[in-house]
Amino acid sequence: MSKISISDIEKVANLARIEISQDRLDSICLEFNSILEFVDTIENADTGGIIPTSQVTGINGVSREDKVTKSQVAPEDLLALAPETQDGYVKVRKVL
C-alpha cells in the first residue's frame, strides 16, 4: 500500500486526539511506514469469501434480568477521581 506522509500523520493524530510535537513528526512518520510495510504482508493472503472474526467466544447478546442492582462503588468515590468537579458534576474547559 502507499507510503504515508507527514500530513497524513497530522491527520491521524487529529483523529486520535493526540498532540504530536513538530520535532517528532519526521521520526514518527519513518516508524509508521516501517510498521505499515511490515503489516502490508497481509495483502498476500487470499481472504476472498472468508467471514471476519471479531470475537472468539461465539457468545451473542448477553442479557440479565431487568432489575436495579446497587453499584459497588459510590458516585462520590468515582467523582473524586476526576481532575475537576463542581456540585457533583465533572467540570471541563469550555467546548468552543
Binding site: 503489516v39 497481509i42 481472504t47 472468508i50 467471514i51 472474526t53
Partner: peptide
C-alpha cells in the same frame, strides 16, 4: 477494508 476487515478475515483463517 484493506486493513481491519482483511485482518479479521485472516484471523478466521
Amino acid at each position: 477494508d484493506a486493513y481491519y476487515k482483511k485482518a479479521m478475515q485472516l484471523r478466521t483463517m
